[in-house]
């Protein structure tokens, strides 16, 4: 599955970039994130419980940040598995400074979904993924609002 999109943050690029390196922020933004532990500078361990309508799936796995070019770009590599299958994904994230303390985040990526989720859940995957992205950005906006405006 290919993913692609963009989101406008109302904060300077450095702040947005920093947020992507903060496990607390990421952990709080991803719906169903039960645990997110920083292993080292760029590796995290996470436990995720996705509850979407009738579907409830627990995933545990790793998140790595690679090819970091602060504050311009970063590559996210995700690997998770659970009873309903596995997800392996890579996301290329770019932060564009639009000036005026706004940052445009652009992402493209590819997810390899396997197991039951892939074999019988095709119908739901796309809409659920889209809505998850939406939720993540909404939450990140809130986090930024709190952090950035408080500063």
């Amino acid at each position: 599955m290919k993913v692609e999109g963009e989101h406008l943050f109302k904060a300077p690029r450095e702040v947005v970039y920093e947020m992507f390196n903060d496990p607390d922020a990421l952990g709080a933004a991803v719906p169903g994130m039960q645990k997110m532990i920083k292993l080292d500078e760029s590796h995290y361990e996470a436990v995720l419980g996705i509850r979407v309508g009738p579907v409830s799936a627990n995933f545990s796995g790793n998140l790595s940040l690679t090819d970091e070019v602060p504050p311009e770009s970063v590559t996210l590599v995700i690997e998770g598995k659970g009873g309903a299958g596995f997800v392996k994904g890579v996301g290329y994230v770019k932060f564009e400074d639009l000036g005026d303390e706004t940052t445009l985040l652009k992402y493209t990526g590819e997810a390899n979904i396997g197991g039951t989720l892939a074999s019988v859940g095709q119908r739901m995957i796309d809409s659920v993924a889209k809505s998850m992205f939406k939720t993540v950005f909404e939450k990140l906006d809130k986090i930024l609002e709190e952090r950035w405006q408080k500063n």
């Binding site: 309508g53 009738p54 409830s56 039951t116």
Partner: peptide, 14 residues
């Protein structure tokens, strides 16, 4: 009719 089907696939585990 949706929930039990999802449970049979073990995608739903309430």
């Amino acid at each position: 009719q949706s929930l039990i089907a999802a449970m049979n696939f073990r995608m739903a585990r309430p």
